[in-house]
Amino acid sequence: MKLTTAPSAVEPARDFPELLPHGRPTVRLHPRRGTPGPHDSHIGGPLLWPAAEAWPECAEHRDINGRAYTLPLVAVAQLTAADFPELRFPEGTDLVQLLWCPEWHEQPHPAGWGQACRLHWRRAGTVADPLTEQPDPEEHWDHGPDMIPRACVLHPERITDYPSDEELPPALAGRFRAWLAERDLPDDLTTVPGHKLGGFMNWCTTDRPDALECGTCRAPLELFLQFDTAEWWPGSWGPDGEPHRFRPLEDREREPADGTDDPSREPVGMTVGRGGHGGLFVCAADPRHPASFFTQ
């Protein structure tokens, strides 16, 4: 299935060309509920996990008596080099797997509170005996479903992402804010929402951290994978009540624009943060260093 970001009556990089040098490539993942297999790229599906390798756990839990206990991490995403050659896979790897604890924990520098994340980089061909029965989140996490994704297949679309004003040089940021205000346009016009690889994150709830750097080596952090409560938001904005510019063209005729469970708008079924979005950031020097997760 092909999903396409629609052209808009207002294109910031076209109508405000000073943004052009600041664009970055991003991949809209366009997740849709399905039944991915363990060799596929996906969100929320089974991982290609070696049977001989212990499934990672989170030990940061206490019962009502204060006693520690562990729970298995939740499989969140799996991406292959064949599907996503733009990812910087460490030498000798062609598969990355993300697991996390769906409860909030205090995280080391610089994330503060967030998900306890684990990224595993491996070579798929070395997994000769994969684990077939993997932990079922519903058996362990009946009290914490918000950050447990539903199984989704991916429909990648390569586009260009542009930063919000917080990511721009101060003088340019001021001119861009004035340009938006003159046209009565929202400040989320540029950064691509939804689930995506790379690009920029919109820091709409908190300010962007001053020191967005790796806690291991102090190299800059870069957005690796963004998760979002919704792929786009219902309602209209812009001239003549234009539909939301990030709603795929292919969805506009066959899917409802709103509803309590719209599988095209909220395919992954997670409530990120307070109903916003979150970004998994990795070290620009070595993505194997511990990742940081920020929510908005």
Score class of each variant (00 low, 15 high):
residue 220 P to G: 04
residue 180 L to K: 07
residue 62 R to E: 14
residue 275 G to S: 06
residue 127 V to S: 01
residue 8 S to C: 10
residue 200 F to E: 00
residue 285 A to Y: 03
residue 44 G to A: 06
residue 242 E to K: 02
residue 192 V to H: 05
residue 154 L to Q: 04
residue 2 K to N: 12
residue 181 A to H: 10
residue 158 R to Q: 09
residue 279 G to W: 03
residue 54 A to C: 12
residue 209 P to T: 02
residue 280 L to P: 12
residue 215 G to F: 02
residue 4 T to K: 12
residue 43 I to W: 03
residue 32 R to F: 07
residue 96 V to Q: 03
residue 264 S to T: 15
residue 154 L to C: 05
residue 216 T to G: 01
residue 274 R to N: 14
residue 120 H to K: 14
residue 77 A to S: 07
residue 9 A to P: 14
residue 101 C to P: 14
residue 283 C to M: 08
residue 289 H to C: 08
residue 219 A to D: 03
residue 150 R to T: 06
residue 143 H to W: 14
residue 27 V to C: 01
residue 49 W to Q: 09
residue 293 F to K: 04
residue 247 R to A: 08
residue 239 P to H: 06
residue 21 P to F: 01
residue 104 W to D: 13
residue 91 E to K: 10
residue 272 V to N: 06
residue 15 D to V: 04
residue 13 A to S: 13
residue 170 P to G: 05
residue 94 D to F: 03
residue 228 D to P: 10
residue 168 L to S: 06
residue 256 P to Q: 08
residue 139 E to D: 12
residue 268 V to M: 05
residue 67 R to G: 07
residue 202 N to K: 12
residue 45 G to M: 08
residue 145 P to S: 02
residue 118 R to K: 13
residue 35 T to E: 11
residue 54 A to Y: 13
residue 77 A to E: 01
residue 120 H to D: 09
residue 160 T to M: 14
residue 39 H to Y: 10
residue 239 P to Q: 08
residue 82 A to N: 13
residue 80 T to V: 02
residue 130 P to W: 01
residue 296 Q to W: 13
residue 140 H to P: 10
residue 141 W to S: 01
residue 198 G to N: 00
residue 243 P to V: 03
residue 266 E to H: 14
residue 25 P to T: 08
residue 111 A to H: 07
residue 257 A to G: 15
residue 148 I to F: 00
residue 278 G to P: 14
residue 67 R to W: 09
residue 238 G to Y: 02
residue 102 P to T: 05
residue 51 A to L: 15
residue 103 E to T: 15
residue 288 R to D: 05
residue 270 M to H: 05
residue 212 L to R: 05
residue 106 E to K: 15
residue 157 E to H: 06
residue 104 W to H: 07
residue 78 Q to I: 04
residue 43 I to N: 02
residue 60 E to D: 15
residue 280 L to S: 08
residue 254 R to Y: 12
residue 233 W to C: 00
residue 186 P to F: 02
residue 98 L to V: 12
residue 185 L to P: 08
residue 83 D to V: 02
residue 246 F to E: 04
residue 227 F to I: 04
residue 147 M to Y: 10
residue 283 C to G: 08
residue 192 V to D: 01
residue 176 F to R: 02
residue 72 P to Y: 00
residue 119 L to Q: 04
residue 134 Q to C: 04
residue 86 E to D: 13
residue 33 R to G: 05
residue 280 L to K: 07
residue 198 G to A: 01
residue 151 A to H: 06
residue 133 E to A: 04
residue 194 G to V: 02
residue 189 L to M: 11
residue 188 D to Q: 09
residue 71 L to R: 13
residue 16 F to I: 07
residue 195 H to G: 01
residue 169 P to A: 08
residue 99 L to C: 11
residue 88 R to I: 05
residue 289 H to F: 07
residue 86 E to W: 03
residue 43 I to P: 11
residue 240 D to K: 12
